[in-house]
Design a protein around this nucleic acid. Structure first.
Lengths: 215, 215
DNA sequence: CGGCTAATGTAATCACCGGTACGTTCACAT
DNA sequence: ATGTGAACGTACCGGTGATTACATTAGCCG
């Protein structure tokens, strides 16, 4: 981060650098807690440029949010369970999701922050909707295969499964601090990673292979 | 909220009112997003009193946080699964926790906020630690019974189970807005409540009754 | 080269916000 | 009833932080 390139003018680079740094700062301090001066100070350029490229603190935050969601989508496209039996595929997906969340804590924090704000900013980014929808497509396919085989219960849909997996993985990152303090267990301790990853795999595999409850 | 009691002087009431209102405002707007003037405006008293009773915005927030955690502990004491077979007891506990979380969204939001701040405030409230520890006691007892009977797998501990249950319930409240926007499903829609409650029950019951993986 | 615009830098502005100085009034004890 | 301290209210201060007015330079195009 220290003085890699000379100060030649480069709009793209300047803009990109601001976005990257802003992402870190917003993720670290929240929206209201972030100082525009602070973002600027961490770049090779000045506060003036934030207004030149983004117009306002709010629009910068919106750009950060949209960029983060798009980046996550791209990363999620690599989450393919492969060609496994349905139950194993879901287990695999859960474990991949676990690693994925742990590797994108800035994004997780931005989501938390956005929820603190009652989603008022994300609701202005309508274009993101389609993005996450097809993340469910893969899962839906796997579940359908399993239901056809009779190896997966038929009273849950992809969104339910997604919810269970996401909740668990999200919590590990989002609530690391309070949980760690109250229970003396650092959820992100590398030594616990395999244990925690296996748990979410076990949980969904056991759940989905159990017989459906009678309506 | 409008003019219930005359303005007779009452230190306890004033303090309590400030604490209640501050809890709502902090939970709604986050720490940095909260304006001390705003809290004062929503009470029958003035900003001056916040400083009189709490000293600073920060100390007010600490009081809110501590108070919220203590209140939750009290409420959690009523979460008794009753005298059921171990597996059913855990299911019951999961479903009670679900309702409990949904009924305390202010608290959930404060926890999110506190994690945004890397737990820096909660870490100053050491007295809270013991509180949550014995919330695990009940669960631990149930699991032990089940393991002895052979109805509950022996490779998970109370904290693991607590983590799975809390994650799911927490997520429903904490991520309501982003999830709702991205997937068009309002997690707190009353019509979905029974469905969601049943899921977490099914999940833990299926998981814990499955045979332990070989080491 | 000369010039024109995109890109950048400097230094202010102005509202907002946490905190306080100072004055007043209530309620209780004697 | 009155003195005294706790409880309360008003008006203000000083700094901070988002935003902008104005000045400048760099690079490209002909």
């Amino acid at each position: 981060m220290t003085e890699t390139t000379p100060r030649r003018r480069d709009a793209e680079r300047t803009r990109a650098e601001l976005l990257t740094v802003a992402t870190e700062v917003f993720a670290t301090s929240g929206y209201a807690g972030t100082r525009v001066d602070d973002i600027a100070a961490r770049t090779r350029t000045t506060k003036r440029m934030i207004y030149y490229y983004f117009g306002s603190k709010e629009q910068l935050y919106l750009a950060v949010l949209e960029n983060a969601y798009r980046g996550i989508r791209a990363a999620e496209r690599d989450l393919h369970p492969g060609d496994l039996p349905p139950l194993e595929a879901v287990r695999r997906l859960a474990e991949l999701t676990y690693d994925h969340h742990l590797g994108h804590s800035d994004f997780i924090r931005l989501v938390s922050i956005e929820n603190i704000h009652h989603g008022e900013y994300i609701s202005r980014l309508g274009s993101l909707r389609e993005v996450n929808r097809d993340a469910l497509g893969i899962l839906d396919g796997v579940l359908a295969r399993g239901r056809a085989e009779g190896t997966i219960r038929d009273d849950v849909d992809a969104l339910d499964v997604h919810l269970v997996i996401s909740s668990y993985c999200f919590f590990q990152v989002a609530n690391r601090h309070t949980f760690g303090h109250l229970f003396d267990r650092d959820l992100l301790d590398p030594a616990l990673r395999d244990h925690h990853r296996r748990i979410i795999g076990d949980v969904v595999a056991a759940w989905l292979s159990a017989p459906a409850a009678d309506g």
